[in-house]
Design a protein around this nucleic acid. Sequence first.
DNA 1: GAACGGATTCTATCAGTGCTAGAAAAGCTG
DNA 2: CAGCTTTTCTAGCACTGATAGAATCCGTTC
Lengths: 195, 195
Amino acid sequence: MTIQRRRERERAERERLIVTAARRLAEAEGWESVTTRRLAAEIEYSQPVLYSHFRGKRAIMAAVAVQGCAELAAELRAARTAAGSPRRALAAVGEAYTAFARRRPALYDAIFTHPVDLPFATPEAPGALHEAFGELVRTVEPVADQGDEPGLLTETYWAGLHGLVTLMRGGRLPEPAHERRLALLTSHFAPPDRD
Amino acid sequence: MTIQRRRERERAERERLIVTAARRLAEAEGWESVTTRRLAAEIEYSQPVLYSHFRGKRAIMAAVAVQGCAELAAELRAARTAAGSPRRALAAVGEAYTAFARRRPALYDAIFTHPVDLPFATPEAPGALHEAFGELVRTVEPVADQGDEPGLLTETYWAGLHGLVTLMRGGRLPEPAHERRLALLTSHFAPPDRD
DNA sequence: GAACGGATTCTATCAGTGCTAGAAAAGCTG
DNA sequence: CAGCTTTTCTAGCACTGATAGAATCCGTTC
């Protein structure tokens, strides 16, 4: 029995190793450099070992995505709770969101752009996803107009953030004006405080 | 001399053939099915011929993107000019944009999401790109507040549309509520007409 | 009409990808 | 120590984008 336990522990340990290595490689050189061979070399096992842990490369990316999403949620929460007013919270969360995307592009892509087999807008979605979206909802809800559904409004604001980030990263929007575009987006979802 | 001409004409003809085939294949089966071999078979030439026309696969995608962008521009223009008021024009263009993205996902991806070597926010960008963005500017400008820079505001609204479309296509947003999210986005950039 | 020469297009191949079958090794049990 | 199960590895598949060098075509000249 205790031997079984040890093996399970070692397996779990190695699985974490895989996810960590994948993430590090992706953040350092981009997902196109995360090949199964590279990854196997990195963890000092042979290639097929990966497939005894994950169904395929996408599943590994999904695991990294969930990990990253938890961090994103934490950063959003920190930004939201530190802000002094609903309107400022919206601005702060927008900043935090886009800053995360720019600081950790590979992580962001795994979560939000790469085709990855994760359930999203369903109850079966991983907790980290619910948490991150929940943070957005808690931020948007206070600035919602009467009659607006908070969930839908959140999705719409989120889409704005996501669009800004991805268009910028794809070279479709120039980086320098990012802050001003973000401010425009925020001010159209919550008029500025007057003080 | 006239022989030279004919050969150039044939070359140009074949280049169009390549772009057309790439586009058809992408629209029918997605870009992951557009391999150089498939494409070569489709045009009934050998693989290396592609490289005598384009530097690589990305360049082919870029050519398709430019073609698609011209169509998008035309559809946006039609939507804008048919609308009765600035506010309605914004809604109509938003509809047209997202409808295009959903109807021609492969085309949309080539233009706006795939990493493709096209200059974007610079004067050297292809005319079709300027045209499409120009349509957006002409739509957003009339609903801009005093003091807002139309270009930046357009980019921000555009980001909203792009975010809605890409999150939906990636399975991150449920499709059914699309119209309502789009309406929310539009109404936050231009308050509804009262009539 | 036939041989030449230059451009064009092909075959064959490279290095790399995700993934897997079956051989080899390792480790627990009697 | 022998036998068996589980784990891990080697080797390979079918594919990718891209390219070098041989073969072919085609207009020109003798």
